[in-house]
Design a protein around this nucleic acid. Structure first.
Length: 865
RNA sequence: GGGCGGUUAGCUCAGCGGUAGAGCACUCGCCUUACAAGCGAGGGGUCACUGGUUCGAACCCAGUACCGCCCA
């Protein structure tokens, strides 16, 4: 293996330009094989399967968040010495992909039926090979450390084998069955949909009250779907509803059809809705279907698969939305309309793919009996084998899993895994497993399986199941699943059910870590129509992948939505640039990574002590998926402590001949870059290689806190130094002294804790030593230190008085507050000792401050001086 | 209708029992030899409302109002 030579430091420009380094680094990482997992390794495993994006998709900001989180986890695990597998791949996305290709060929005026099934599927494959999977290429721009050698696609041969295997197994166990049920039907996609592929929205419709029957037998029903009355086979009322008791068991005439239909009593009718009487259309409504079953009512279908009325009569051939007003008009002509309410807001289901209003439709479909599977999926979380994070989200999971309807898995599509069931001429039904031959003369079910059926196998089909592969042995169950809370039901529950079933009761994940949706800077959902969509690739081009990732991660609190804006991306870029320049400074000053010097200064011991605290809190934050916290900790440590203070102090140390400072700087930057690497991989790689001359930070060791460096005394000492410097700077600023202007000053540091820091204090504050002509015009007291300054002219007494009075007011308030507490017997008796001690210290300091500030104020020359 | 979450500085969010914080935005002064994508200083909040628990509440409890999401 060749060790690349680090870039000559002189060539580092003063601005970080991500585009120049990102592609180069990524290609090097991949070709070095850093991301390729070894199932034969002795190391502890760490595994993540990437939620497979749709083959039709491209990288959007939600992916960028999801991937940034996974990459941070994977890179940290890799640096910590785990055998790390992050497995990428794509989902064939049945309906979505079929729609895309159908639109594609429609441009040439061709429908899939023109092509025929085989040729169409061929065409989809071709499309997939050509333009599908764009998103995978885009992932490299983001820096995803995925194992490309294990990329999978849900329609791959082995993954299809997994589908067939588990179907056969569930079928043999009686957990898959075929039945005629009311299912969600998309009249545009011409396929069944599962419950979760239906989106409900509050839409404006109409509520029409229609009188059925006449005379004493008349009964009024209310409906939002007047056209379905053509298929009514009963009217239902609540059995305890006194208004209708006398009518139960009688028949009324159904208008427009002349059919007589019974009035039935059913517990599930809500007496408070409308008139308390409902029309019953078993072929076109799921609730009515159940009522029909309970009362042995016939089902009369009045629409075809495209939502066109098929009932004989004047409405035949009308689309359902044309038929509705036509039916209402006809009823009105007969005087049947009792009331009309428009607009009437009610919940309407839409196809999640094409937004067409879903039509409940009675049809023969395949279902999974989810009872035992869902129970197991719930139990795995209940007993802690899988932990949902953040834990509040588990309730939503239980609500779903514990009350799940049987899952309709057949789709009337061509693109997908074909149902492995064959029908014989005498009505035989044969489920065929892999490697089995269907009986001669049998024909295969034309339908394919729901896409979620195959993506539900993703955590183990991708690892080689049903074969017993080394990958499966090493990496299942996966360490963590990272995904948005919005697909907890869609997908997570499915994987839990199928994983537990296929893998002998072992759930597919140890942890499910949920994140939120990405929103704009005002917390608004991103939408094309609103024009507030952020394209991550655009940000990567303009601000860099690191800045894009950092912006997302910095807002990522567990389970919560993430607000982002252009300004924050710029801020993240600035942060990367800050790191860049700080490292550049270190390199220009001959920084070295190696053994620390024996004689450390207080500043050295302070920054090393602080570093240990940061290492352990960042590590904890990442382990708990607190990405925002990890980012914040590192941002402030790097910028406020390392750059603003340590680097400034180091300059002074170096110029005074303390060469060991270079080792301390090297040590701190080495650790800081390694801590930052999982979050901002590119800039850290570039700088770390230059700093250490080593191969790659990707395979560097994750920092571990070393308590030998803990040094509370040094931390306290530097805190005092910072207080003093800040206070004098404040005075200078208030007095309008220019930053560059040197001022003579006398410091009372002798014998105090800051004595050794006098050169640093003078340099940081640009204070010259007092000369013979020294005549102090101002005197500041900061703690035990007095600073006398000769501002070489009158000082702004008003500004000084204002500042002192403000501080005095704060000190007096503090004194009053603490004295109040200390004088409170209850407080003294009941508050814990450490709190009392702390309040005593605050009180004492407040009293000191008051005395000091009052003395300074009285020493001021009279106003208008 | 059922459930969950939220309401803290102009904006987005931390803090979840013991001195109200951050980033961005804002004001003032600076091209100080790593960085103007920067440096220094500063202003800004009855922590939604009403009760309760507690020596002590942004934080715990109850209720109210508004906002968001999920399910029906």
């Amino acid at each position: 293996m060749t060790t690349p030579t680090p870039e000559p430091t002189a060539e580092l420009p003063s601005q970080y330009t991500p585009a120049q380094v990102e592609t180069r680094s990524y290609e090097r990482w991949v070709s070095a094989g850093y991301f390729t997992a070894d199932p034969g390794s002795e190391r502890e495993p760490f595994s993540i399967v990437l939620p497979p994006p749709n083959v039709t998709g491209s990288l959007h900001i939600g992916h960028a968040l999801d991937h940034s989180i996974q990459d941070a986890l994977a890179r940290r695990a890799r640096m910590s010495g785990a055998e790390t597998l992050w497995l990428p791949g794509m989902d064939h996305a049945g309906i979505a992909t079929q729609n895309v290709v159908e639109r594609e060929i429609a441009k040439d005026g061709v429908s899939r039926h023109d092509l025929g099934r085989e040729a169409f599927v061929e065409r989809v494959w071709r499309w997939k090979d050509e333009s599908g999977g764009k998103i995978l290429g885009q992932m490299t721009k983001l820096g995803d450390s995925v194992d490309w050698s294990r990329e999978r696609f849900t329609m791959d041969e082995n993954l299809s084998r997994a589908v067939q295997t588990i179907f056969k197994s569930l079928f043999d166990d009686g957990l898959i069955y075929r039945a005629e049920r009311i299912i969600n039907w998309c009249p545009r996609c011409l396929t069944a949909l599962s419950d979760i592929e239906v989106e409900h929205t509050e839409d404006e419709g109409e509520l029409i009250s229609i009188r059925y029957g006449s005379g004493d037998d008349a009964i009024v029903v209310a409906t939002t779907r007047a056209e379905t009355m053509l298929g009514d086979t009963a009217v239902a009322v609540h059995p305890a509803d006194e208004r209708y008791g006398h009518l139960i068991g009688r028949e009324v005439e159904l208008p427009l059809t002349g059919r007589m239909i019974p009035i039935v009593a059913d517990e599930h009718v809500d007496p408070a809705f409308g008139t308390g009487a409902v029309k019953v259309t078993p072929a076109h409504d799921p609730n009515d279907f159940e009522i029909g079953r309970r009362h042995s009512l016939p089902s009369i279908a009045v629409m075809d698969e495209r939502g066109v009325i098929t009932a004989h009569g004047p409405f035949e051939g009308l689309d359902r939305f044309e038929a509705r007003p036509a039916v209402v008009a006809a009823l009105r002509a007969e005087g049947r309309i009792v009331a009309e309410k428009r607009p009437y807001l009610h919940s309407v289901g839409h196809c999640s793919r094409c937004k067409t209003v879903v039509e409940p439709r009675l049809s023969l479909q395949w279902f999974v009996n989810v009872g035992p599977l869902a129970k197991a999926a719930g139990d795995a979380v209940r007993d802690g084998r899988t932990r949902i994070h953040p834990p509040e989200m588990a309730k939503r999971y239980f609500d779903w899993v514990d009350d799940m309807h049987d899952w309709c898995i057949s789709r009337q599509l061509w693109w997908g895994h074909r149902i492995p069931v064959w029908y014989g001429p005498a009505g035989e039904v044969v489920c065929v497993g892999p490697d089995e031959e269907p009986p001669a003369g049998h024909v295969q079910d034309p339908d394919v399986l729901d896409t979620w059926f195959s993506s539900g196998l993703w955590p183990f089909s991708t690892l080689g199941w049903p074969a017993k592969t080394p990958e499966l042995a090493k990496f299942y169950p996966t360490s963590v699943l990272v995904t948005g809370y919005d697909i907890l039901f869609f997908w997570v529950a499915r994987m839990m059910m199928l994983g537990l079933y296929a893998m002998d009761g072992r759930p597919p994940f140890h942890v499910v870590a949920l994140h939120g949706m990405v929103r704009d800077q005002y917390g608004k959902k991103m939408s094309k129509s609103f024009g507030n969509v952020v394209d991550p690739l655009d940000w990567i081009d303009r601000y860099g992948a690191d800045a894009t990732r950092f912006t997302l991660l910095r807002g990522a609190n567990p389970g919560a939505d993430v607000a982002i804006s252009e300004e924050w991306a710029a801020g993240s870029r600035n942060f990367c640039n800050k790191i860049w320049n700080a490292a550049r400074f270190a390199l220009m000053n001959g920084v070295a990574v190696g053994d620390l010097p024996a004689d450390l200064t207080a500043a050295d011991r302070w920054i090393l002590s602080r570093l240990q605290g940061v290492i352990s809190s960042v590590d904890t934050a990442l382990a708990e998926f607190e990405f925002a916290k990890a980012c914040d900790l590192l941002y402030h440590f790097a910028w406020d402590e390392v750059c603003d203070w340590y680097v400034e102090l180091a300059k002074i140390q170096i110029s005074s001949g303390r060469t060991g400072t270079r080792q301390v700087l090297g040590h701190v930057f080495d650790a800081l870059l390694r801590l930052l690497h999982p979050l901002v991989p590119f800039v850290t790689e570039e700088l770390w290689r230059a700093l250490t001359g080593r191969e790659s930070i990707v395979i560097a060791q994750w920092p571990v806190a070393d308590s030998r460096f803990d040094d509370p005394a040094a931390e306290a000492e530097i805190a005092q130094l910072q207080d003093l410097v800040t206070e004098v700077r404040r005075f200078r600023s208030d007095q309008g002294l220019k930053p560059g202007q040197r001022v003579a000053a006398r410091l009372s540091l002798t014998g105090g804790p800051l004595e050794a820091h006098e050169p640093a204090i003078r340099t940081l504050l640009r204070l010259d030593p007092p000369e013979d002509t020294f005549t102090p015009t101002a005197r500041l007291a900061v703690g035990a230190v007095t600073v006398e300054l000769d501002t070489a002219g009158a000082i702004d007494v008003a500004a000084e008085r204002k500042r002192l009075e403000k501080d005095l007011a704060a000190a007096r308030k503090e004194a009053a507050q603490t004295a109040g507490k200390l004088g409170n017997e209850q407080f003294m008796a009941k508050a814990p000792d450490d709190v009392v001690t702390n309040v005593r210290a605050r009180a004492a300091k407040a009293v000191d401050d008051i005395a000091r500030l009052e003395a300074q104020l009285s020493a001021l020359p009279a106003a208008h001086g």
